[in-house]
Design a binder for these strands. Structure first.
Length: 651
RNA sequence: GCCGGUGUGGCGCAGUUGGUAGCGCAGACGAUUUGUAAUCGUCAGGUCGUCGGUUCGAGUCCGACCACCGGCUCCA
């Protein structure tokens, strides 16, 4: 056996090391700074502890603190310390799982004597975690057989269940293949079932914070018991942690529910009911502008506008399958004439289908694109309602396209272009596409149809060479879908537009068209929502823009402030000019000092604040304060100002 | 729906061991006439989420309900 090994690093360079060298040895041989930052190693895409002995000729990547993978490891190890602390403080408790998640980690517990965590407990737990971390405990890995594992965790029902599901193969795990499991120990007596890897020592941890307690069902199944979950966040340094906490606070400030009150856009009066919004004049104006623009774009893209009622007899939803597959999302029925059941509609598609079916259709009419701002009602569970993004009454910008199989691909392609272009008009240009496939047990139609539709959608996404993410089982009951997932101004992703391909409903409703061959054929249906729902899109836009709507969507585009009362006549003339140009403008009289009125207007996020004083009256000019600019521009001619913003002001 | 938390004038908050509600902003009125992020004064506004209970007495204690907030796919 040779006395040295050679490993290759990601940059292609090689390193010769004594035999039996570990990942940590490798890091040290490259530099002390790297050795300090190293948390784990990656070989062939798999992560291992730094203490692993390296094999000759392996390709090794050193995972450092601050990298995405490094943070995951850090968070995972912090989760272990959390469990250790909780078990110390509440002896006899059971612990379940504690994975890293985006920006943090959690751990699920069942406390002894059915106790619950309170917010105050978090402080005590943090202190215990600090104590553990200060002890520089090392994490050590151990491998066991399933039997040994079951023995070790015989007092831990959740751990035992996990081990058993590794054993019978229901839990997909690489480690299970060789029949052995791994555990990690640190401190006195704390041991956790874990795939790893972990940091070598708690020295690497410390920049963490526990954020909240929550209930969470064991294995996400609401039929199983609910556990107590603690969420936390952890970072490679105090500074990174603080930056994250600042980001959280920033996100909170632009919460659309808060801005909705401040800017007087909408509200949820108790008198109406949970999840049902009213739009106030300013919110209503923005919404109208969004809808008007949408109609304009749809008209240009060959859509035809239709309207349908909010309620319908049960028959329609029996025929569509909604009562079989979507009943729990629907409001309960009201019984009218002759015990007839009527339902509030949860979707618009059956109505558009009836419009299609209202007479015989020719191939010459296809693709037939029907569009409606259709208000639908869904009975969302009380606990999931959230501002405008999850409501019980919502208006979909819903389109249904009926086309032939041959037209399907072209139609999908131009549809996706259309969708992305309109999203871009709202500054939403950073996105990826998600493909949602057949929901197991919650769908009808043949597997062949599903596969054909899924393939068509995935081809479509692929031609765009954007990232495609798979959402297994996330489709609707009648077909698979692709959705455009948009990143907003502060990097959060939102599901926006959805495109669904449907072979099922045309079949159920017996839709046909007469082809050029004079035979009858079945059309394909494409369901599409661009905003998704107007309410939700509105809410997301408020947060995306942080309340500063672009000029064309601002309820008040320009405000004029006379410096003194004797400038008011002049300002009224300017106001008239602005109105004549079609701009939405108003005037704040000089009852208060200018500074105060400027401040108010800035808090209202008015795009242009105009100030007019003696100089301006003499020279037909104004002082222009543009939102987001530091210094005002003085002495701008009125005409120049108007013509400079006109293009941006309307869409 | 489930777990935890919260609920005081339009908004943001205070309210000590249960003794009968206060502040700031916004609002109305008056004064001030102001060149770039808060002029001054006066006034008005609340059956303390709802209902019930304990008590001589409840915003404060107990119960039920309602609403809101944070979670409930992330698989050792």
């Amino acid at each position: 056996m040779s006395k040295t090994i050679v490993v290759e690093l990601p940059d292609g360079s090689t390193k010769e090391l004594p035999a039996n060298s570990t990942g940590l040895d490798l890091a040290k041989s490259i530099g002390p700074k790297l050795a300090g930052a190293a948390l784990a190693i990656e070989i062939d895409g798999k992560l291992y502890d730094l203490g692993l002995e390296l094999a000759d000729k392996s390709h090794v990547n050193i995972v450092v603190a601050g990298s995405a993978k490094g943070r995951e490891i850090l968070r995972h190890s912090t989760a272990h310390v959390l469990a250790q602390a909780v078990l110390n403080l509440w002896p006899g408790s059971h612990f379940a799982i504690g994975p890293p998640v985006e920006d943090g980690f959690y751990y699920d517990f069942e406390l002894a004597d059915n106790k619950r965590f309170t917010d105050e407990d978090l402080l005590a737990i943090e202190q215990e975690m600090d104590r553990i971390i200060d002890e520089s405990q090392s994490f050590s890995r151990e491998e066991l057989s399933l039997e040994e594992g079951l023995k070790l965790f015989e007092d831990q029902p959740f751990k035992s269940e996990i081990i058993r599901s590794i054993g019978d193969g229901t839990l997909n795990s690489e480690v299970a293949s060789d029949g052995r499991i791994s555990v990690y120990r640190n401190g006195e007596g704390f041991v956790d079932l874990c795939r790893g890897p972990h940091v070598g020592s708690t020295d690497k941890l410390g920049s963490f914070k526990l954020l909240r307690v929550a209930g969470a069902y064991w294995r996400g199944d609401e039929k199983r018991q609910q556990l107590q979950r603690i969420y936390g966040t952890a970072w490679e340094s105090r500074k990174a942690l603080d930056d994250y906490l600042v980001r959280l606070a920033e996100a909170e400030k632009r919460d659309h529910r808060k801005l909705g009150v401040e800017l007087d856009l909408f509200s949820f009066p108790d008198e109406i009911g949970s999840g049902l919004a009213v739009f106030h004049p300013k919110g209503g104006l923005i919404r109208k502008l969004m809808e008007d623009y949408s109609r304009k774009r749809h008209e240009a893209a060959g859509y035809q506008f239709v309207y349908s009622p909010h309620i319908t007899k049960a028959n329609l939803f029996e025929e569509s399958g909604h009562l079989d597959w979507f009943a729990e999302g629907m409001f309960p029925p009201m019984q009218l004439d002759n015990e007839q059941n009527y339902y509030l509609k949860p979707m618009n598609c059956p109505f558009h289908i009836l419009i299609y079916r209202s007479r015989q259709r020719s191939y010459k009419e296809l693709p037939l694109r029907l569009f409606e701002f259709g208000t639908v009602y869904r009975y969302e569970k009380s606990g999931v309602i959230h501002g405008l993004t999850r409501v019980r009454g919502m208006t979909q910008d819903d389109a249904h396209i009926f086309c032939s199989i041959d037209q399907m691909e072209t139609e999908l392609d131009s549809l996706l272009s259309f969708v992305l272009e309109v999203l871009g008009d709202y500054g939403l240009e950073d996105y990826f596409i998600e493909l949602s496939t057949k929901p197991p047990g919650k769908a009808f139609g043949s597997d062949e149809d599903w596969e054909r539709a899924t393939a068509a959608l995935s081809n479509l996404a692929r031609t765009r060479s954007v990232d495609l993410v798979l959402d297994e089982g996330g489709g609707a009951f009648y077909g698979p879908k692709i959705s455009v997932q948009v990143r907003d101004a502060i990097g959060r992703t939102w599901q926006m537009s959805t495109i669904q391909l449907d072979f099922q409903l045309p079949q159920r409703f017996g839709l046909e068209y007469v082809g050029s061959d004079n035979d009858r054929h079945r059309p394909v249906m494409i369901h599409r929502a661009l905003f998704g729902t107007v309410e939700r899109f509105f809410g997301i836009l408020v947060e995306h823009y942080n309340g500063s709507f672009p000029l064309w969507l601002s309820p008040i585009q320009v405000r004029i402030l006379p410096v003194r009362a004797d400038h008011e006549d002049y300002c009224h003339l300017v106001l008239k000019r602005l109105h004549e140009s079609g701009l939405r403008a108003d005037l704040l009289e000089a009852h208060e000092p200018l500074g105060s009125r400027i401040r108010k207007s800035k808090l209202d996020r008015i795009p242009y604040i105009l100030v007019a004083g003696d100089d301006d009256v003499n020279e037909s000019s104004i002082g222009v304060n543009e939102r987001g600019e530091g210094q005002p521009r003085r002495g701008v001619k009125i005409d120049d100002f108007i013509s400079s913003i006109l293009k941006e002001a309307f869409r």
